[in-house]
C-alpha cells in the first residue's frame, strides 16, 4: 500500500457495503484502502490464529479506550490530548489492518495539529462509524466477538 495515499490530504470518503472505501481527492480515486486489510493481519501474525485473536482483542480494547479519551479531550477543548489520542488510534488501527479507521484518525490528528477543533468534532461521527465497521469486519473473520 502506498502510504502517501493515506496522509497529508483532505479526503472525502464513504464506506460501501462490500467493506471497501473510496477516497476522492481532486478527482483521484484510491480503491486500495480497506476497512480491514485482512492479508496484512495474516502476514503480520504469520497466520497464527491464536495470536490474531489475541491482538485483535487488544486492538479493539485499546482503540475503544482512546476514542473515549478523544471524546473527553474534545469536550474539554484539550487540543494536545486530541492530537495524542487520535495519533494512538491511527497507529493502533494501522498496525492491525484498520486502514480506514487509521485514516480518519489521521485527519483528526492533522486538524488538531492545525488547532482546528471544529474539524475534529465534525470527524468524530465518521470515526465512530469507521470503528464499528472495523469491529464488524474483524468479527466477520471470526477474530473478535461483538457483544452489545
Amino acid at each position: 500500500m502506498d502510504k502517501s495515499a493515506l496522509t497529508g490530504r483532505i479526503l472525502l470518503y464513504f464506506i460501501p457495503i462490500n467493506g471497501q472505501v473510496e477516497f476522492m481527492n481532486g478527482g483521484e480515486q484510491n480503491n486500495d484502502i480497506k476497512v480491514l486489510d485482512k492479508q496484512r493481519v495474516i502476514d503480520l501474525m504469520d497466520g497464527n490464529l491464536d495470536d490474531i485473536v489475541e491482538i485483535a482483542d487488544l486492538t479493539v480494547e485499546s482503540i475503544s479506550g482512546h476514542i473515549g479519551l478523544l471524546a473527553e479531550a474534545l469536550s474539554g477543548n484539550n487540543i494536545k490530548a486530541i492530537e495524542l489520542s487520535s495519533h494512538s488510534i491511527k497507529g493502533t488501527a494501522a498496525n492491525f489492518g484498520g486502514d480506514v479507521l487509521s485514516e480518519v484518525a489521521a485527519r483528526i490528528e492533522n486538524a488538531a495539529r492545525s488547532g482546528d477543533i471544529g474539524i475534529c468534532e465534525s470527524l468524530m461521527g465518521k470515526l465512530d462509524e469507521s470503528f464499528i465497521s472495523y469491529k464488524k469486519a474483524l468479527a466477520d473473520e471470526g477474530w473478535i466477538t461483538i457483544t452489545e
Binding site: E54, I55, S62, F96
Partner: peptide, 17 residues
C-alpha cells in the same frame, strides 16, 4: 510502546525471530 496491541505484536514477532 504505550500501545498494548503494538507492544504485544512486536513481542511476538521478536520472540519468533
Amino acid at each position: 510502546d504505550d500501545d498494548a496491541p503494538i507492544r504485544i505484536t512486536l513481542k511476538k514477532k521478536l520472540e519468533g525471530w
